[in-house]
Nucleic acid binder design. Structure first.
Lengths: 250, 250
DNA sequence: CGCGCTATGTACGGTTCAGAACGTATTTGG
DNA sequence: CCAAATACGTTCTGAACCGTACATAGCGCG
C-alpha cells in the first residue's frame, strides 16, 4: 500500500544512471567516485526553467536525457536561442566560469532527467584542476562554438536552413527520430515567426524529409536534412565531437 | 651608433607597459611577477591575423592597445563578427579552454600593441589555479555573453542599431573618439552589405551623432548613440564590467 | 597637378521575412 | 459528445535587406 503510494509519488520510471551523461562517463574512476555520492537525480519536466537571467545558481545539472535550450529573452519579449545542451554536457557553466550568473535563461525543451551537483561542491572539485576541470572547460568551448555559429547562422541563413540545423542538433541529443515540439515553440527558439516555421516545415514535409502532426515531428530522412542544412551544423558537430575526444588524440 | 640602429629596427615608439592590459594589471603582484619575464611585446598591425580557423596557437596575446575582432568566415566568403577584444582581455582562449584551436579567426581591426605569452608557459600558470585562472575564466564568460548577444542582435535588430552597438563597443576599447575604419570593413564585421552601412552611417551623420570621411569615423555625440542602440550593447557592457570587478564584490 | 585607386553615394528589382488577420483541424475536458 | 482550447494553414501588405550596377568624390603617388 504505502510502497505503491511512494512509487506513485516518485517518478514512475527509475532515473537513468549518471553515466548516461557523457561528461560524467568520461571522468576517471577516482573523480567519478568522489562525485557520485553528491549527484542527486532530478527530473527535467518540459518547460521547466533551470535558471533565469541573473539567477545565482545553486546547482549545476548533468542531463542524462532530454534537451535544454539556452536562450535570451529581450525586453520586447522576443527571444532567440543561443545554444542547446543534452547528455553531452551540463547546464550552469557560469558557476565554474566565475560569474555565478548570466543574462541568458535555460529552459527544458525536451523532458528528461539530470543529476544535479551543489555549487559549492562543484567549485571545490573544479579547483582541484585535473580531468574534471579539463572536461568542463572543453565542453564550454564546444558551447562557445555553438553560440558563435548561431550568430553566423542568424545573420546569413534562411529560416529553412536554420530549421534543418535546429532539427539535427536536437536529434543528436535524443534517442529516437521523434521530437515533441510545436511549431510555435520552435519559432521562439529560432527567433522567427511561427508562420515562417510552418512554411519551412511544409517544404521539408513535401520533400519527404520529415513528418509532423500537432506537436510531434519525426525525421524520416536524416541524410536529406544534412543535404539541406547550412555549413553551421557541421561546424558545430565537428567541433563538439573533437572536444569530446580524449586529450591528446589526433 | 648601434644603439640608434637597434632603436630604428625596433618599433619607433616604445611599447606601452604591460599593465595597460587590464587583465594583467588586475593580477596579484606575485602572479604578475612570475609572468613578467615571459611577456614579450609585439606590435598588432592593422589587418594582421592573430590566428586562423583551426590554427594550433603558439601564444596568447594580451593587448595593451588596439582592437581585435573574432569572426567567422563562411565557405562562400561571407563573414560575421562574433566578438571583439581590446585591452580588457586576451586573444587565444581556446588554449586554456583545452581545444587548442577554434573554427573562428582573429583579425586586428585597430592597430596597437600586445604582450604575448608562450602557450606552454600559460598552461603551466593556468593549471596552478588561483587568481590568473580565475580572471581568465571570468573574461571568457564576458566573451561568451558578447557572442550570445551578437546572435540575438543579428536575429532581431536593424543594421543601424547594430552599427551603433559596434561603434560603442569599439569606442570602449579605444583612447579617443576616432576610429580608422572603412564602411566596407564595418560591413564585413557586421555581415551586411557595404551599402547598408553607408545608409545607416548617413542617418547617424545627419543626426549629428558621428562625423566620417573616407575611412575615418569620429563619434561626436556618445549619449546620442546610446539612445539609438539596442539593449544588446548595455547587456554586454554591464556583464563585462561586472566580470571585471574583484571577486566577491556586490 | 592630374591620373588612378579606393571609398562612398545612389538607384532598382527581387527576395525574405515581419505583422496581422483569419480559417481549419485536432485534441482535451467537462 | 460537444465546446473550447490549441496547433497548424493561408493570405495579404509592407519593411528591411540583398545583389547588382553605376556614379561621384577624396586621396596618394608619380
Amino acid at each position: 500500500m504505502s510502497r505503491t503510494l511512494a512509487a506513485t509519488k516518485a517518478s514512475a520510471v527509475p532515473p537513468p544512471p549518471a553515466t548516461q551523461n557523457l561528461l560524467l562517463a568520461a571522468l576517471p574512476a577516482a573523480d567519478y567516485a568522489r562525485l557520485l555520492p553528491h549527484l542527486e537525480p532530478v527530473p527535467l519536466p518540459l518547460g521547466w526553467s533551470v535558471y533565469e537571467s541573473g539567477d545565482r545558481m545553486a546547482h549545476v545539472f548533468f542531463p542524462t536525457e532530454g534537451i535544454i535550450s539556452l536562450l535570451y529573452v529581450m525586453e520586447s519579449g522576443a527571444s532567440a536561442e543561443i545554444a542547446i545542451t543534452g547528455n553531452e554536457g551540463l547546464v550552469g557553466i557560469s558557476l565554474f566560469m566565475g560569474g555565478q550568473s548570466t543574462p541568458s535563461r535555460a529552459i527544458v525543451q525536451s523532458a528528461g532527467h539530470a543529476y544535479r551537483l551543489r555549487a559549492d561542491f562543484l567549485m571545490r572539485e573544479f579547483e582541484r584542476g585535473g580531468e574534471l576541470q579539463h572536461k568542463l572547460l572543453r565542453f564550454t568551448q564546444a558551447l562557445i562554438t555553438q553560440m558563435a555559429q548561431t550568430a553566423v547562422c542568424n545573420r546569413h541563413h534562411t529560416v529553412e536552413q536554420q530549421l534543418c540545423r535546429w532539427l539535427l542538433l536536437s536529434l543528436d541529443r535524443l534517442p529516437s527520430n521523434k521530437l515533441a515540439m510545436t511549431q510555435e515553440l520552435i519559432a521562439n527558439m529560432l527567433g522567427v515567426r511561427r508562420e515562417g516555421v510552418t512554411e519551412a516545415a511544409g517544404h521539408l514535409q513535401e520533400a519527404g524529409l520529415i513528418d509532423y502532426r500537432r506537436g510531434h515531428i519525426a525525421v524520416l530522412d536524416r541524410p536529406g536534412l544534412e543535404a539541406r542544412v547550412c555549413e553551421c551544423y557541421a561546424v558545430v558537430k565537428r567541433e563538439s565531437d573533437r572536444l569530446q575526444e580524449p586529450v591528446g588524440a589526433a
